[in-house]
Design a protein around this nucleic acid. Structure first.
Length: 746
DNA sequence: GACTTTTT
């Protein structure tokens, strides 16, 4: 049974026992013993159904006359259908005795009533309840035989002409096709959900297509990747060195590289990773072959997926086009004096007046916001219509607050939405953005694809101002856009180095700079930068708990004049899993800081939320005006109504936001959050583990981003070795990208 | 040693 996934079989409107079905049932017979039970009956009522995952709660009227509550993931179910269910009885806390269905096989209806209900269920196009009634009145128990074997006799029924008879017979046969396909697919390790998706795309050719080249599934079916396709291929007897497998594997390897941030891979490296991945020696000829088939773009030794090659070339070409046109505005000294600019900042504003495309980069506290405000004021004075955007919802909100002007996410700016048969940007080369200038903040988070979309939608005459911190974490998506623009030396750049916001003697700032330059931070634990040595992950977690629950809070009021420790202290950690990861720390911190008691709670899946919990919104919600990364406190949970209320505190003061049950998955515990999530936010005090447990994520810019989130105090806990590894690992800047070179090409 | 995550 290996590789078959869940022992799960469901036949769509099965009437015929085809070969596939017999094989399928026989194969599963082994597992239908022991704890498994079998019940049979008619579907009486569907109580609940989720069309996304086919989770269904229904009542089954058994032949004994009992009415059973049954649950399970059934891709297709209709009232009146007779089903044989394989599964086990379970006891649900709230709903009592239930039959948990693993496998459901529709039975051929055995009574005239069953046949009538089955045919009239809507399962077969062209037959409704009244036609079903007439058919059964005429043919009785033989109705189904006649539809499939003697369809011409259907005209004997009053009201059914030749045409309608044909439609009915055809729809009935289609059901049989679906059934065959479903049985074949499910028999080869494909879950019912995907079997339905596959059938929707390939129709009755599904079996043939999958048998010929299961790797096509990875291209054609959303949600099926190389791994699943490979499992299916194995099941139906594909060899490890099958050319289909190798070609698909090469593209998968390239896809993996893209997930790591590369825009291309050099051919040698692609061959090496593909060979390792497939467990087969991949010959270089395959690359050339894929190149010929346009499934790969090969430029010298660089191998690209076509979409990324286009994106990278277009970004370079578009930037060259846009910079060709050079406008100039006078630099207005009267505004400058209002804002009191330092020389470096003045230079940045001047550049923004003169350049068509400009990059301003600098760390926290170097005055990026001030500069932005001055530039906006001056541009507005010149009568410019200005667009403001950020890669994330939260950053857009902050930009709007900081500048007092509307700002949107880049996605909203480009009107991401349904069109052209799918989700896409409605602002594009055919429908460009209107305006004189576009200002983008947190530009380090923009990847090559988004940059491509953005430049396509940018009007030729529009000025572009990109603002970001090139030492922060790179974009999640592929490319190194900000760093490449800077490295190319073809785009005007202003680098802000002087820190104005934090006191010069701040060790946070000083050490952030040291780390950036690859030096070990100065640690004397006298100032605002503290390192506490702990080796074992357990010790680290314990120390974090102690610090956050008792040791720090007693200091907070005296030293920092902060009242609420929960607001003031933020635990940051590089990853989700592991003992010192987000999930575990949240569990521990919730138990310590907000233990169970008289407070109301709500349990959703594995997540437990309690009144008083510190939570974070993890999706933009424009109706509620809360954004991915916003942190608040649960003030009330109504377990009866399954409602929840969160208090957010932002520039506009306190604000209560209500969540209904189905919206609660937009929230997660936020006692500890990932460093990635913290990007763009600042906290008075940051506590962060630095341990070799997080080996893969010990990166310089991750450490840099983490510590620069702290305004007053940062406490690192872990080993000097881990800290050292972090600082030495500058690999993220070594993403394969050719954008800088393309910008330099004439 | 295998990890982070944006957008609608």
């Amino acid at each position: 049974m290996g590789g078959l996934g869940r022992p799960y079989l469901y036949l769509l409107g099965s009437i015929f026992y085809s070969n596939y079905q017999i094989k399928g049932v026989a194969a599963r017979g082994i597992s239908l013993v022991g704890a498994m039970a079998i019940i049979e009956g008619t579907v009486e009522r569907i109580t609940f159904r989720n069309e996304d995952n086919f989770y269904t709660v229904f009542k089954l009227l058994a032949s004994t006359g009992d009415l059973h509550t049954c649950v399970g993931n059934l891709p297709r179910i209709v009232v009146g259908e007779e089903l044989k269910l394989f599964g086990e009885w379970t006891k649900h806390e709230q709903y009592g005795l239930q039959f948990n269905t693993e496998t459901a096989i529709p039975c051929t209806p055995t009574t005239t009533l069953g046949i009538e209900r089955y045919l009239g269920s809507g399962l077969i196009k062209g037959i409704g309840p009244s036609t079903a009634k007439k058919l059964v009145e005429k043919f009785g128990l033989k109705t189904l035989d006649i539809i499939s074997n003697e369809p011409h006799r259907l005209t004997e029924v009053e009201g059914i002409g030749e045409k309608k008879g044909e439609i009915i017979a055809k729809a009935f046969l289609e059901q049989k096709d679906i059934q065959d396909v479903m049985v074949f697919l499910q028999g080869n390790g494909i879950t019912p959900t995907y079997a339905v998706k596959i059938f929707k795309v390939y129709g009755k050719e599904s079996v043939q297509i999958v048998q010929e080249n299961p790797y096509r599934l990875a291209d054609d079916i959303f949600g099926i990747g190389f791994k699943t396709a490979d499992t299916i291929a194995k099941n139906i007897g594909f060899k490890e060195d099958d050319p289909h497998r190798i070609r698909a594997g090469i593209r998968y390897a390239l896809g993996q590289a893209i997930e790591q941030g590369h825009t291309y891979l050099p051919d040698e490296e692609l061959i090496k990773t593909a060979s390792e991945l497939l467990g087969v020696d991949v010959k270089k000829d395959f690359l050339a072959e894929l190149g010929k088939a346009k499934q790969l773009i090969i430029e010298e030794d660089r191998c690209y997926l076509p979409s990324l090659y286009e994106a990278e070339c277009n970004v370079a070409q578009r930037l060259k086009e846009l910079t060709r046109y050079v406008p100039s505005l006078p630099f207005d000294l009267s505004i400058e004096s209002e804002f009191k600019l330092a020389p470096e900042q003045e230079q940045a504003v001047k550049a923004a007046m003169q350049e068509k495309v400009l990059v301003i980069t600098g760390g926290p506290g170097t005055g990026k916001t001030t500069i932005t405000k001055v530039v906006l004021t001056m541009w507005e004075k010149a009568g410019f219509k200005i667009l403001l955007g950020s890669p994330t919802g939260r950053a857009a909100k902050r930009l709007a607050e900081a500048t007092g002007r509307p700002a949107k996410t880049i996605h909203r700016l480009l009107e991401y939405g349904f069109g052209n048969g799918g989700m896409s940007f409605q602002r594009n080369e055919d429908n460009r953005l209107k305006g004189d200038a576009l200002v983008l903040d947190e530009f380090s988070m923009v990847d090559i694809r988004l940059m491509d979309s953005l430049l396509k939608a940018t009007d030729d005459k529009m000025r572009l101002l990109f603002i970001g911190d090139c030492d922060q974490l790179p974009a999640v998506g592929p490319g190194n856009v900000l760093k490449d623009l800077i490295a190319s030396n073809r785009i005007p750049v202003v680098r802000l180095t002087k820190v104005y916001r934090q006191a010069e003697q701040s060790q946070i700032v000083m050490n952030a700079h040291r780390i950036n330059q690859g030096y070990f931070p100065e640690i004397n634990n006298q100032g605002d930068f503290v390192f506490m040595e702990r080796k074992e992950p357990k010790e680290i977690a314990t120390l974090i708990l102690d610090l956050v629950s008792s040791r720090l809070p007693s200091h907070i009021e005296k030293r920092f004049n902060l009242s609420d420790p929960l607001d003031a202290i933020q635990v940051l950690t590089p990853m989700r899993r592991s003992e010192t990861g987000v999930d575990n720390l949240n569990r521990l911190l919730q138990a310590r800081l907000n233990p169970a008691g008289k407070k109301n709670e709500i349990q959703l899946g594995y997540r437990l939320l309690r009144e008083g919990d510190k939570v974070m919104q993890i999706r933009n919600n424009y109706q509620k005006d809360v954004y991915n990364g916003d942190i608040g406190r649960i003030t009330r949970i109504d377990p009866e109504e399954r409602l929840l209320e969160v208090l957010y505190n932002d520039e506009n003061g306190d604000r209560l936001v209500n969540y209904e049950e189905e919206e609660i998955d937009e929230l997660t515990l936020a006692y500890a959050i990932s460093v990635h999530k913290s990007q763009g936010s600042e906290y008075p005090i940051v506590v962060m583990p630095v341990t070799t447990q997080h080996y893969m994520l010990l990166q310089r810019n991750l450490l840099y981003t983490g510590i620069t989130r702290a305004k007053k105090l940062v406490i690192l806990i872990g080993t000097k070795k881990a800290l050292f590894l972090c600082i030495k690992n500058n690999k993220t800047s070594a993403r394969y990208s050719y954008l800088a070179n393309r910008l330099q090409e004439e």
